[in-house]
Design a protein around this nucleic acid. Structure first.
Length: 212
DNA sequence: CACCAGGAATGTA
DNA sequence: TACATTCATGGT
């Protein structure tokens, strides 16, 4: 195994503590089934969106009593669009949410059953949904289903480049980079990815400082 | 007012 | 394979 990334993980954890705020739910352990469903929904809503906007959309869903997948499958696209509007791309996301909810609730027998299936199968099934790409699929696998699948996003990409991963950044290559250097533990994956994003935002907010 | 934020699909060369 | 464009809102 290549050189471990655990020291970097420990360093980030020492600096920022357990991921909080927007990450509190995603990194919560254990999660109940309602919370897992909310994470899956948020994984769609957060695509290319500011978290504050996502939060408003989630509040709308909550106030309307539609934070469960079984509620969402019953809704019309227009109804859903109106509620999630603040998160942006609401027409696309409405369809994506409806499809995801249908696949999980109707075709797969619920999140609980999905969680008991092999990761590879579930990942393929998620990727077959139009509007769910690698990152969103892995968000759901890691944060909603507690599968040890590392999430690659823009922050992860920058971080890897900064800490010695030479170019060649296909999604799967980057994913391997992290997974080869970490214990196969979903808790580590969850917190580490969250901390990388938190750290990335902190740096950006301060216009690029030198690092620790 | 310009730019950006946990992406993904589609079209072009 | 590698880019460009489109989708859309609210924050800074």
């Amino acid at each position: 195994m290549a050189k471990s990334l655990i020291p970097f993980f420990e360093e980030l954890k020492k600096q920022y503590g357990q991921p909080s705020g927007q990450w509190a739910l995603w990194c919560k352990r254990p999660k109940n089934w309602a919370e897992r469903e909310q994470v899956a929904i948020e994984a769609i809503l957060t695509q290319r969106a500011n978290w504050l906007n996502v939060q408003q959309a989630v509040e709308n869903l909550e106030k309307a009593g539609c934070l469960l997948l079984r509620d969402i499958v019953e809704m019309s696209p227009g109804q859903l669009e109106r509620l999630i509007r603040p998160s942006g791309f609401y027409r696309q996301k409405s369809v994506r949410l409806l499809t995801l909810a249908k696949v999980i609730e109707k075709d797969s027998g619920g999140l609980k059953r999905l969680k008991s299936l092999p990761v590879g199968k579930v990942r393929q099934q998620l990727l077959s949904i139009s509007g769910i790409g690698p990152e969103t699929a892995d968000d759901i696998l890691l944060y909603a289903l507690d599968k040890a699948v590392f999430v690659v996003d823009e922050y992860t990409r920058r971080w890897a480049k900064l800490f010695g991963f030479p170019g060649e950044s296909s999604y799967s290559k980057l994913q391997e980079f992290f997974q080869e250097r970490l214990p196969q533990d979903y808790r580590v994956y969850q917190d580490f990815h969250a901390l990388i994003v938190i750290d990335g935002k902190a740096r950006r907010g301060k216009k690029c400082l030198s690092e620790a």
